[in-house]
Design a protein around this nucleic acid. Structure first.
Lengths: 154, 154
DNA sequence: CCGAATTAGTCAGGGCACTGAGTATTTAAG
DNA sequence: CTTAAATACTCAGTGCCCTGACTAATTCGG
């Protein structure tokens, strides 16, 4: 005996929340395009021609994962990937017309889905929901790089 | 133009939250045992001898995923898996001494990690955080099985 | 009692997410 | 100018997560 109540464990809650979202996305938005893929499309609508790493940074995907997601989107013909002539290490990404169309279509459905997903909360609670999660996620993210070490330069 | 603000998309937030948690878990709790694995150990501390499907139900893992997680835990010698003599379809799961020890050790570390993770929120906000996420996740979960169809029997 | 549904679990396949190691290119230091 | 460090990306490996198709065992209806 000494079992713990998982409903007070944020990690467990976060996982269940994501699963619930996955489910709803699949039925209400798309079975082809996933939520992370949509995030990438969206980043490229906002800033066409970004390089792969920066897109990953914008949407919160590490170098390996963004590579996989981009390769799937490119395979489906939703984006183009070309070497940066200025810097041969980079790949510059740009949506195709099809990618743009897909993003437009999914944007509408995503908005509908978000409404359904958040329906159990009042408007004020929804604001709070965003705020609390964002603060926790941002803070934990910040622990990654210990920022400026207290002593500046060596 | 028509890009969307992902910081108001619960799915995106949920994903970032889980990533942040994963990161912290990895550094503060264990690099061997994952959070879902701990959840399974915990379920078996509470109810030894559960069958695989029920454990999955308790911790929110579908039949395929629970099978993988259980197989890893069993490979590491943290649990035993035996056929139910009463019902030849089931596997009954039970922690080994090692599994019990591991659970005890991780319980302490997990509590510490949760404190750090939730540190940006006040006590009241933490309660709210749990409540809001739980309500959203539960409601979306509920949409899965449309409950009783309005008309009872055919 | 027997065939039909139901149930527990497996397997193949696709996608997300991380780490650590390796390659190529660019930039910085000497 | 040339070597060393940094940067963008790839690849292999592990683990979580889902669906759909399949097998084996049990239960239920007639």
């Amino acid at each position: 005996m000494a079992a713990v109540d998982l409903t007070t464990h944020p990690g467990h809650l976060a996982r269940r929340l994501q699963q619930a979202h996955y489910l709803l996305w699949n039925t209400m938005v798309s079975e082809e395009i996933t939520s992370p893929q949509f995030a990438v499309l969206n980043a490229l609508v906002a800033e066409p021609g970004l390089d792969q790493r920066t897109v990953g940074e914008r949407v919160g995907l590490d170098r390996s994962t963004i590579a996989e997601v981009v390769s799937r989107l490119s395979r489906r013909g939703l984006l183009d990937k070309v070497r940066d002539p200025q810097d041969g290490r980079r790949f510059l990404l740009r949506l195709t017309d099809d990618g743009l169309r897909t993003h437009r279509k999914l944007t509408v459905r995503t908005a509908r889905m978000n409404q359904v997903f958040l329906a159990p909360l009042s408007s004020e609670e929804q604001i709070l929901f965003f705020d609390l999660i964002r603060r926790v996620a941002d803070t934990a993210e910040g622990l990654r790089n210990p920022a400026e070490p207290l002593v500046a330069q060596p």
